[in-house]
Design a protein around this nucleic acid. Sequence first.
DNA 1: GAAATAGGCGACAACGTTGTCAGGGTGATC
DNA 2: GATCACCCTGACAACGTTGTCGCCTATTTC
Lengths: 331, 331
Amino acid sequence: MKDVAALAGVSLKTVSRVVNREAGVREELAARVTRAAEQLDYRPNLTASNLRRGDQRTGTIGLLVEDVANEFFSSIHRGVEEVARQRGVAVIAASLDRDPALERDLVAAFASRRVDGLILAPTASEQGYLTNELRSGWPIVCIDRQTTGVDTDSVVTDNRAASAAGVAHLLAHGHRRIGFIGGQSKLATEQDRHAGYIDAMASAAAVVRPHWVHHGAQDSNEAMVAALAMLAWADPPTAIFSGQNLITMGTVRALRELGLAHRVALVGFDDFALADLLEPAITVVAQDARAIGHLAAELLFRRMADPSLPTATHVVPSRLVTRGSGEIRPE
Amino acid sequence: MKDVAALAGVSLKTVSRVVNREAGVREELAARVTRAAEQLDYRPNLTASNLRRGDQRTGTIGLLVEDVANEFFSSIHRGVEEVARQRGVAVIAASLDRDPALERDLVAAFASRRVDGLILAPTASEQGYLTNELRSGWPIVCIDRQTTGVDTDSVVTDNRAASAAGVAHLLAHGHRRIGFIGGQSKLATEQDRHAGYIDAMASAAAVVRPHWVHHGAQDSNEAMVAALAMLAWADPPTAIFSGQNLITMGTVRALRELGLAHRVALVGFDDFALADLLEPAITVVAQDARAIGHLAAELLFRRMADPSLPTATHVVPSRLVTRGSGEIRPE
DNA sequence: GAAATAGGCGACAACGTTGTCAGGGTGATC
DNA sequence: GATCACCCTGACAACGTTGTCGCCTATTTC
């Protein structure tokens, strides 16, 4: 900028004015500055600008999710990006891999970077470490799961009711022996989805055998192993409800391997690409990930504009998408 | 920081020393500073720090891809993130949506933000707008496609050979009437994949009918429409080679709709989740997206360390994964 | 023609941090 | 007891930018 000012024969401030399109610079001068800037290939330094500007905005927001490569979260990312882009805000994303220490570290790293706000899909068992950040007015919106121990805005699915609806769908098709395969049981989403399963089973007075319930499947492969084991019992479930997209895929693999894909019913939580092209096509309880991203970003910007807003929990609807696997009847 | 210094009764510089763990501060003093920092909930401002430090590093790199929600690119994102994380560097990602103007704008925005380096999957027809950035030593690595008009490091697949191998696989299974469905024909990847198709057909002396070739499918749906049309001709192809993951999915949909999934062979470019669970399972020419992300990030950091390195093009291998759809023989 | 007004432009300080350098205190050495 | 070396610590400037304020010139008004 100094060089541009020198070349154009004006003061620093005038260059600044031209760059920022402030009024009050003669056209001829402005043109001279613009030319000089182009000639020197000048690029304004946004970070210095943000430092000086009173508002202390960096024009970046952070997004912390379990895995940016997981379809559910990458769709959320996309939704967040679309809202942020309209406002000229950049999105820094990182994966937490369900590692509580990493979660704390990355939040601290984002705080140091002074991202203007944070969208967080928490995976640690509690978020007490956020207390100070929140007190200082750092805007945070949680997605997928709520925080425990601190109070933040959040965008969640009604996991319990949605899950109960999925299981009720299986019950309505005549199943009584219904299995449940869930993820890491410390996560609130997982607990809620399990609770929904229990709700539905209870209200149909269906018995839940312990070996029909598996918790803690960390990935598709573990889910497959769990499903294989579950179906090997003498009184195997005639239907399975799976608690997350990767788990559903693993369960499909297990059913295929046992040749039971058309005989054991399956309803999964979370939609995924190609679910409709499998045979049978997979019935799911679908969340609209992109919409969740949109809403979370909107809430974040709202809170950035007015940090004093009361926090609220937004429950986004999910819907049952029937495709075939959930409509298989017991033999 | 001023407040911390005041509370601890030391100078600004001493606080800075403690925060950065510089040697040469008495333990007792350091402890006092640490306590004060905690009490005031102090967070160092990385942007100011970066501004002052000579190296002008922001500790961020940019990633520009077609769509962060596309499985291929989100896996690359993941790979890049893993390398960046080891170095304490954050990744800012954004989607280009094949919009040349957006590509220019986002590159400029990232330049203003002073990201330390950029990983770009170019989609515009030429990248002349990068000339100045490159001259000023901004490290850039291209992925998926190379730049045209400027010289950068790049990580690409040997699209032409890989594609020829895929088509040769179909020829080897007795097909002579093989269709090709590709994406936006301005993209180099698309052209190379088409060239590979032509190569393979020519070396087998197989005739290519114009109506067996479709360019410009922008998404899964357009691909489906194209495939439906292609298969409606009097002499329809007995096998199809599809040029990209979304196109493959669309083609699968078309084959299903026509009841031809088990009669018309299909080989797709790019692997995708569940490709092995479809019936028939889809044979693909697979790129290892995560490895591409790793390599691109490694190259970027290498170039950041030494901007004078000669640019190079790295070709990553792809492999044919046979699963069933590509081994269907003509009737 | 003098005074008031307005519009352009520049000097300076400041944002939060760190590199440089100088100063003060302590202990060891002769 | 004087000198030297060493270790800590702080004052100051600087990174690239912008907000504030004041000055200067040109224009208008009576």
